[in-house]
Nucleic acid binder design. Structure first.
Length: 222
DNA sequence: GCGACAG
DNA sequence: ATCTTGTCGC
C-alpha cells in the first residue's frame, strides 16, 4: 500500500480503511513497543508548507529501554490540514519505521484513530501501510469529546463521536493533563489503553514516544 | 460569514 | 508542530 498524494485520494483511502476489519491484535506478555515522531524546524509556525524539512525518529523499546533506534531526514509533502495529517507526515513517518532492522509488536504515534471526520485517522492509516498494530496518542481529540477523568494517575474517561466510544482520556500522571489514547490499526479500546499503561515509566508521555521525540530533536539540532 | 481544527 | 523563563513541587 502506498501513500495518497492528493486530498481526494487520501479521503478515498480513509473511507476504505474506516470500514476495514483487520484481524484483532492480541497484546503479548512482553511486547516490543515502538514509537515514531516527526519534528520540524524551530520557529516554524502555522500549518507549514510542502517542502518543509522534517526530522523523524523511530524506536523499538521493551516498554522502558530502547532496543533499537533509527532517525532520518525527510521532507513534508504538504501543509497541515486537520483530517489530512497523512498528507504531510505519512511518508516521513513510514520512512523512519522502515529503517528499523526489527519490527515492534505495536507502534505508538501522534495521531488519532477512529476519532476522525471519516473514521480513519493517521494511526489507522500508518498501521495499514506498515501492516503493524498501532495506537494513537494525542494531546487532544480531533472531533471526539468527553469530560476529563479524575486527577489521579490511571483514571480514564470515554471520548465519544456521535455516541460512539472511539477513544479514551487517560490520566497518565496525577497533576498533568490527560492524554487522548486512540485505538489504531488492529487495536481496540482496552488494548490501546493497556499498551500505553505498560510503557509510562512514571511520566506523562509513554516512553517510546518520548524517546522518539528526543531522538528526532537531537537529529534536528538545537 | 466566522470560528474551530490530530500535527 | 513550534514559540518560551521562571517557577512550583517531589
Amino acid at each position: 500500500m502506498n501513500w495518497p498524494t492528493t486530498k481526494a485520494e487520501l479521503i478515498s483511502l480513509q473511507l476504505e480503511l474506516a470500514s476495514a476489519t483487520p484481524a484483532p491484535w492480541v497484546l503479548p506478555d512482553r511486547p516490543l513497543i515502538g514509537g515514531v515522531w516527526v519534528c520540524f524546524p524551530r520557529g516554524l509556525s502555522g500549518p507549514g508548507a510542502a517542502g518543509d524539512p522534517a526530522w523523524a525518529a523511530a524506536v523499538v523499546t521493551d516498554g522502558r529501554r530502547v532496543v533499537e533506534q533509527q532517525s532520518s531526514r525527510g521532507t513534508a509533502l504538504a501543509s497541515y490540514t486537520p483530517g489530512l495529517l497523512a498528507l504531510r507526515l505519512g511518508p516521513v513517518l513510514e520512512g523512519a519505521v522502515r529503517r528499523l532492522a526489527g519490527r515492534p509488536d505495536v507502534l505508538l504515534l501522534d495521531g488519532t484513530g477512529r476519532d476522525h471526520p471519516r473514521g480513519a485517522g493517521l494511526a489507522v492509516q500508518l498501521g495499514a501501510v506498515l501492516d503493524l498494530p498501532t495506537v494513537g496518542v494525542t494531546h487532544r481529540p480531533l472531533v471526539a469529546s468527553g469530560d476529563w477523568p479524575d486527577d489521579l494517575a490511571g483514571a480514564t474517561a470515554p471520548l465519544l463521536v456521535d455516541g460512539r466510544h472511539v477513544g479514551t482520556w487517560v490520566r497518565t500522571r496525577t497533576g498533568t493533563r490527560p492524554l487522548a489514547v486512540h485505538p489504531g490499526w488492529r487495536t481496540d479500546l482496552a488494548t490501546s489503553v493497556a499498551v500505553v499503561s505498560t510503557c509510562l515509566a512514571g511520566r506523562r508521555t509513554p516512553e517510546p514516544l518520548r524517546l522518539a521525540r528526543q531522538a528526532a530533536r537531537l537529529l534536528r539540532g538545537r
